[in-house]
Simulated assay, not measured.
Amino acid sequence: MNLVIKKYSTPLITGLFLVSAISGTALFFHWQSGWFHSMHIWLSMVLLLPFFLHLWRNWSQFLLYFRNKSMLAACLLSFVVAGGFMLTSGHRGGNPAMRVFPVLTQAPLTDLAPLLHRSPDALVERLTHSGYTVHDTTDTLDQIAAASGQQASAILLSLLPQQQHDGGAHRHGNRQPS
């Protein structure tokens, strides 16, 4: 095992680093992002294996770097800059659906209907049939929820098409005849 690590870890780190550097540069400049995005993510993850094997094999020599204050300063600076990006990038993270809900619940039924593959009048009919108070096709789900004493997100979920499940067989690729 030690011979394999010694023989292949540095060449693999070098090759995968070059792929990561080229794909990262392409992504930075938005050049053919479709080609590079998955490759960059997956091969950067693969890069970790030879990196950790190389680190493990050279651990004692690696620790010698930490006797020099420049290594500690470089690591600290790297983490501070990374933290700065995390705090200021503007990406809130989390479930993107939670950011979409307010956009959809504040849209008039006339704008929401095409997204749900229905006419505005069909939405009004469905909502009134379900017991909600709807005044006009220009009402928003927020307004309908307020008038009906309900949550707008619950009304939106009730309007979304329901997916048909086949008892989990689709997860394994074993489709049962219908």
Score class of each variant (00 low, 15 high):
Met1Asn: 11
Asn2Lys: 09
Leu3Ala: 14
Val4Asp: 10
Lys6Pro: 06
Lys6Asp: 14
Lys7Thr: 03
Tyr8Gln: 00
Tyr8Trp: 03
Tyr8Leu: 00
Thr10Gln: 12
Pro11Ala: 01
Leu12Tyr: 08
Gly15Lys: 04
Gly15Met: 01
Leu18Tyr: 13
Leu18Ser: 15
Val19Cys: 06
Ser20Thr: 12
Ser20Gly: 08
Ser23His: 10
Gly24Pro: 13
Thr25Pro: 03
Ala26Tyr: 09
Leu27Met: 00
Phe28Tyr: 15
Phe29Trp: 11
Phe29Arg: 09
Phe29Asn: 05
Phe29Pro: 04
Ser33Asn: 13
Phe36Glu: 07
His40Ala: 02
Ile41Met: 11
Ile41Val: 12
Ile41Asp: 07
Trp42Asp: 02
Trp42Lys: 10
Trp42His: 08
Leu43Ala: 04
Met45Ala: 02
Met45Glu: 05
Met45Asn: 08
Val46Tyr: 14
Val46Pro: 11
Leu47Met: 05
Phe52Pro: 09
Leu55Met: 13
Trp56Phe: 15
Trp56Glu: 10
Ser60Thr: 14
Phe62Leu: 00
Leu64Phe: 14
Leu64His: 14
Leu64Met: 12
Tyr65Cys: 02
Phe66Glu: 03
Arg67Lys: 13
Asn68Arg: 14
Ser70Ile: 08
Ser70Glu: 09
Met71Glu: 03
Ala73Pro: 07
Ala74Phe: 09
Ala74Asp: 03
Cys75Asp: 06
Leu76Lys: 05
Leu77Tyr: 09
Leu77Trp: 12
Phe79Pro: 05
Val80Cys: 00
Val81Ile: 03
Ala82Ile: 14
Gly83Met: 00
Gly83Lys: 02
Gly83Gln: 03
Leu87Arg: 08
Thr88Ile: 00
Ser89Trp: 02
His91Val: 01
His91Pro: 06
Arg92Asn: 09
Gly93Tyr: 09
Gly93Asn: 05
Pro96Ser: 05
Met98Pro: 08
Met98Gly: 11
Phe101Gly: 10
Pro102Glu: 07
Thr105Glu: 06
Thr105Trp: 05
Gln106His: 15
Gln106Cys: 02
Pro108His: 06
Leu112Val: 02
Leu112Asn: 10
Ala113Met: 06
Pro114Val: 01
Leu116Ala: 00
Leu116Trp: 13
His117Cys: 01
His117Ile: 01
Ser119Glu: 14
Pro120Phe: 00
Ala122Lys: 09
Ala122Pro: 05
Glu125Tyr: 15
Glu125Asp: 15
Glu125Phe: 15
Arg126Asn: 10
His129Lys: 13
His129Leu: 00
Ser130Val: 00
Ser130Phe: 06
Ser130Arg: 11
Gly131Phe: 09
Tyr132Ile: 01
Thr133Asn: 14
Val134Met: 01
Asp136Gly: 07
Thr138Val: 02
Thr140Gly: 04
Asp142Cys: 07
Gln143Trp: 09
Gln143Ser: 15
Ile144Gln: 13
Ala145Leu: 03
Ala146Arg: 15
Ala146Tyr: 12
Ala147Lys: 12
Ala147Thr: 03
Ser148Asn: 05
Gln150Gly: 09
Gln151Cys: 03
Ala152Met: 04
Ile155Pro: 11
Leu159Ile: 01
Leu159Tyr: 08
Leu159Cys: 02
Leu159Met: 04
Gln162Ile: 02
Gln163Met: 04
Gln163Leu: 03
Gln163Asn: 11
His165Leu: 00
Asp166Leu: 06
Gly168Phe: 13
Ala169Glu: 13
Arg171Pro: 06
Arg175Met: 03
Gln176Gly: 05
Gln176Trp: 11
Pro177Ser: 06
Ser178Gln: 12
